[in-house]
């Protein structure tokens, strides 16, 4: 896969995170996460075409199944079941959110992180973008009040780390990748179950309604 295609796929990952920061509707957020995961899957398929390792193809297919199909289906069912059209609001308003996004992207591209973003000389253009995706995913989690948005933020952070490791040449053995994917799959199920329980107990997915923990 040439560098321009990889850059385009990584830009999709980055763009979906920006979209996740700004969207107010859960359905849009789920679709954005699906698209982001599709871009990651395409990058994994690229690794398979380069190495012809059939186990990598198997991993890419599993990622496609778990992240692109299964996770969005889970979330859409949840949205329909509880009529969760709108995601929880954010702590910061839109202009401030955009300002923080710009600052984090700038920080990720700054000289301070050169040792990190320059791990692999050939991918020096791509690594800062992957790193800024990580920082933006963290910000997504901190800034959003909705439980579903928080789940998507955690999964988005995981996608960004996967992108970073691929471009930094730090991919793990297929067996371990399988273990990691299994973990994510279980995490996804548990988090989805918790979202349902939260809705049942609090009548909302807005985490600011959860204020029972007092000393």
């Amino acid at each position: 896969m040439n560098i321009l295609t990889l850059q385009f796929l990584l830009e999709i990952v980055f763009g979906t995170i920006i979209f996740l920061q700004l969207t107010k509707k859960n359905f849009g957020a789920v679709l954005a996460y699906g698209l982001q995961s599709l871009a990651i899957t395409a990058i994994l398929f690229g690794s398979f075409f380069e190495t012809s390792n059939l186990f990598l193809l198997f991993i890419a297919l599993l990622v496609l199944f778990v992240k692109v199909i299964l996770a969005p289906v889970f979330f859409i069912k949840l949205i329909k079941k509880h009529e969760l059209t709108f995601s929880g609001s954010t702590y910061l308003n839109m202009p401030l959110t955009l300002l923080i996004i710009a600052i984090l992207t700038f920080v990720a591209h700054s000289q301070k992180f050169t040792p990190l973003t320059g791990i692999l000389h050939a991918d020096q253009v791509l690594l800062p973008l992957a790193f800024s995706s990580m920082l933006l995913s963290l910000f997504l989690l901190i800034n959003h009040k909705g439980a579903l948005s928080q789940i998507i933020a955690v999964l988005s952070l995981e996608n960004s780390i996967v992108a970073f490791t691929i471009f930094a040449g730090l991919e793990q053995s297929p067996t371990l990748q399988l273990g990691i994917l299994f973990n994510i799959f279980i995490w996804l199920i548990i988090a989805t179950v918790f979202v349902s329980i939260i809705y049942k107990h609090f009548g909302s997915l807005d985490i600011t309604t959860m204020n029972n923990l007092k000393d």
Partner: peptide, 24 residues
Amino acid sequence: KPSAIEAAWKYLIINSIGLLLGFF
């Protein structure tokens, strides 16, 4: 109980983020 659900959710999210950073 609602407070237990809240504690578990907090635990799940904070530790998952922490462990992803540890993974990185």
